[in-house]
Design a protein around this nucleic acid. Structure first.
Length: 213
DNA sequence: GGGAGGATTTGCT
DNA sequence: GCAAATCCTCCCG
């Protein structure tokens, strides 16, 4: 018999572990974004781990700044940053207070409230593309820096929380190099996704940008 | 489906 | 100044 999904939010202890344990364990869980129009549910299908100050791919590599301060705090909080002049990306802070590790939420499947996301994702040609990529995910769920530092373990109602759900089996987890990470930080196979899931974003190696003419 | 080029602004060196 | 944990449109095949 199949157990019903557990709708309690993941407790803080879930995030208070090494980030390389937490990242694959997040796959298949449901991120709940509560909005005035109603809840949006996102089943996580792809994530990336950023492992502390030693990780050259991490925003924490060059130390604490105002931008990345949440990464250095306690686990179970959202770190939301702005990049490329246009986009937001969301992470979940892991490990104990003082260790700047986090998991980037890269893609997922909208399982409830898709109609609330389509007006923000006009370029999506089908529902699989609504949250296929970290900035698309944040756009679909109306996530911006106002949510930086949000406690995702506070319990409902909260702007953001993660339902315990039903974890997926290890056999369904794949891993490989991180996407779009420059330099030596890109070599770590710390991107995790669900095998054969159509909402996983395509792999793209980092490409330095040329100056405009 | 994949590559090139542009968009657009913040944060840090 | 310039790079940035990206995405979109256009074009090609």
């Amino acid at each position: 018999m199949i157990a019903a999904p557990d709708r309690t939010p993941l407790p803080r202890e879930f995030f208070d572990r090494p980030v390389l344990e937490v990242a694959p364990d997040l796959l298949g869980r449901t991120l709940v974004r509560s909005t005035p129009e109603g809840p949006i549910h996102l089943r996580l299908t792809e994530v990336e781990a950023y492992d502390g100050m030693k990780d050259p791919g991490s925003h924490a590599y060059r130390g604490r700044t105002r931008r990345n301060a949440v990464m250095f705090g306690p686990p179970g909080y959202a770190y939301v940053y702005f990049t490329y002049g246009m986009w937001h990306c969301m992470n979940l802070v892991c490990g104990p207070d003082g260790i700047a590790s986090a998991v980037l939420l890269r893609a997922g499947e909208i399982t409830e409230g898709a109609e609330l996301t389509r007006s923000r994702r006009r370029s999506a040609r089908n529902d699989k593309e609504l949250a296929k990529g970290p900035a698309r995910l944040a756009t679909a769920l109306d996530i911006d820096r106002a949510l930086d530092g949000t406690d995702v373990c506070a319990g409902l109602p909260s702007p953001l929380s993660i339902l315990t759900g039903v974890p997926i089996s290890d056999e369904q987890v794949r891993n490989g190099p991180r996407t779009g990470v420059s330099g030596e930080g890109g070599v770590h196979p710390w991107r995790f996704w669900i095998a054969n899931d159509p909402t996983v974003s395509p792999y793209r190696a980092h490409k330095p940008r040329r100056r405009s003419t």
